[in-house]
Write a protein that binds this DNA or RNA. Sequence first.
DNA 1: GCCGTTTTCGGCCCGACTGTTTTCAGTCG
Length: 581
Amino acid sequence: MTRTVDRRDVAEVLDRIASFMELQGEQPFRVRAFRSSARAVDALPKPIQDAIDDGSLARSKGIGPSTMQIVHEVVTTGHSSLLEDLREQVPPGLVDMLAISGLGVAKIRMIHERLGVDSLPDLEAAAREGRLAALPRFGKKTAENILQGIASLRRASEYRLLHHATEEARHLTTALNQLPGVVQTQVVGDVRRRMELVQELVIVLVADVPPAEVFRRLADLPGIHELAGTDERVVTLRFAGGSSAQIIVTTPVNAGAVLLEATGSRAHLDQLADHAQSKGFALHGAALWRGSEFITTPDEATMYRALGLDTIPAELREGHGEIEAAAAGSLPDLVQAGDLKGLLHCHTTMSDGANTIEQLALAARDAGFQYLGVTDHSQSATLAGGLDPDLIRDQAETIDALNERLDGFLVLKGIEADILVDGSLDYESDVLAGLDFVIGSIHSRFNMSREHMTGRLLSAMDNPYLNIIGHPTGRLLMARNPYPLDLDAVFAKAAATGVALEINADPHRLDLDWRLAARAREAGADITIGADAHGVAGLANVRFGIDMARKAWLTAERIANTKSATEFVAWAKRRRPRAGG
DNA sequence: GCCGTTTTCGGCCCGACTGTTTTCAGTCG
């Protein structure tokens, strides 16, 4: 039996079709059409079957009769005959190479034709042996970059991004909840601790029947390819699609200890074991003991309480001082999703977003927010449709008119301005002065030296109209390293100038990293959580930003967009020169 | 292949810059 096909599987099929066609030398516009259909499928706000049934998929921009037919085939049969035909014609290894930064179609073709290389291992060997560097238009540097690209691809195959893992876990728990005898399911491990990258999905089943019986019923679930038992409490599920999840079964009386153990992290558990010992307890085999006496722990709170600790939120369990804080009763009152009053960093159809200002505003209002900060790209971002000063004025008029109609909800005028090489923003002060707030981001020249890049950011923070540094390190998870920065200098300057640092909530970025956000907090810098939404669906990204903020021990008062709209605008404008002096 | 219509084809996001190499593929949003 095949695993239920979800929209990500379908999007991947469409994207791979595009890649094969690209390598075949197919018309660029045809390739692009498949890529945009993949994006359209991936961005669906509902399960793919529902979107087919209610006709919303067929109406989506980028989906036509041809791609619709492919979607149908993939959903009903689990495969695409077009993709299978293409696999016969183009070695799949060449498609894998497209994922390497610095390798495009032209170079891959050259490598294939001249060296006969058609797989990543072959490519790696060719790079190491100097055969690659000897090709025309290649060199030593290119070969090195390709080796690095292969290494990071390998890392990427071991991890999944948090939003993907979260979605997989939700599907799985829905199925597991149906099993007879299961009284509770809880996602644990990296997903529960909201790690930005997840190595393994782990789920605890609290059951009032023996584990063996649960496992027998597990095997009957649709989509399970294989059950690989490791011991009597733990089983690894393998799905037809190649992914896997670990299932841990426990009884209600010991659920607290098992949940704690399975949630981790290793560092937290080690420190907890030391703490338990100092209190005359021991942690053995995912249970709590006092001498030879088994202590029942029906939930985690019971377990922490027995050890004289306040309950530690899962996000904080990283061994970064949370046990001392819990013992002292000084755990922070972490920011929660409901604390966020405004959505910042949103792109509209005026630059590269998919929805209008009004659509975003209504969606934000429906989601319970009080204001929306519109920040389209600036004029340097030509491809992304950056706004020139005239368009900024047009947008302001649109927003003013919209605000008159929106009862009790406010759209704020902002911009995501490019921070240029010299640290200046790409608008004059008179343009910036007409806005409610300004985000500055680096979108070019990522390879400057640490010294120059740091100077670029520090100098940008001297601009009195700048309020927020967007995605401060420029990283893309598993795809692009952060640019080099003296972060201590950046955090100190942010604290001194009152410029906030963004936790960009796009699950591909999550930048600032939570470890760095904790350092920024200690340095006294303000933080904002930015959706970086390019459409209505992207507004929901803020939850990942909240996750990262919580991991950084942040409370609501340290996050600028927990302020009301009026307070936020006052906060943004406090840096500006006063009129007339 | 999709879109939009000035309905059945023509147009489809740019362009400055980079690195490596020596004329261009890849990058960035």
